[in-house]
Design a binder for these strands. Structure first.
Lengths: 123, 123
DNA sequence: CGTTCTCATTGACAAACGTCAATGTAAAGG
DNA sequence: CCTTTACATTGACGTTTGTCAATGAGAACG
């Protein structure tokens, strides 16, 4: 297992756009008249943040520039399919993005997205 | 139905502390080593925000100083028990507080709490 | 090639969740 | 008192969620 360590550089770093689920984030919470679709979009994002494993996953990824999927399995104590499941949910919420390089999937947070979400709450 | 309207002032405004669930909010998400309990506490809060009905409810309450439970049933199109259920969850997450005055339950947001949550995400 | 490795997908299952009808509770107002 | 009113609690239900074993899909490497 390794996290963001230098390694023999892989061939073509093929950039993969992971599930940009086009969530039209985010009008502030306070600011009247919240449509049902707005509510659902926001709920999806908060839903992604509503699981302990995913929060710690996000925290782990945020603590490094980039983290390999393989580096999450152990600290989170979840099976590989479960890790894959959670990364997908975070990615669909736009909170992380992934790029496949060689055999590994590298994840990083999307700071602007986090700020967007923060702005929902901070008036 | 009425929202925050002047009304014949009720007798003893009995202040009721609604379910202070002592959620030890909130160390920033980025900032390494997130314990399981921290994660669970945060997850509880985000979980409260992860339902469209609750988000619209919170938005409604935030749009006025104070909102009566009875004023939520109609705009949210949910039954009275369901409204009660949701207010409880928001209150347990510390996002709103309620006070029973006369026959009515009045809810208001806890802005500091919202800011706390925002601060988790905004580095 | 064929093997190995990493991640995704599928299917299954128990637990948690959102919802409402029915019922309980307690204050208000005659 | 007794009735009304507003909210809480309970019980039941279908749906969603978190989890893993099993399997699939592709890249890497010899």
């Amino acid at each position: 297992m390794f996290v963001n360590s230098k390694m023999k550089q892989m061939s073509h770093p093929k950039s993969i756009a992971v599930d940009e689920n086009v969530v039209s984030c985010c009008s502030p919470l306070i600011g009247g008249e919240m449509s049902e679709v707005e509510a659902s979009d926001m709920a999806q994002i908060f839903g992604a943040l509503s699981d302990p494993a995913r929060l710690r996953m996000l925290s782990l990824i945020a603590s490094q520039e980039e983290v390999c999927s393989c580096a999450l399995e152990e600290p989170l104590a979840r099976s590989q399919p479960t890790i894959s499941h959670h990364t997908r949910i975070l990615a669909e919420a736009g909170l992380i993005t992934g790029e496949k390089r060689g055999r590994w999937m590298w994840w990083r947070v999307v700071p602007e997205r986090l700020k967007d979400v923060a702005r929902i709450l901070g008036e």
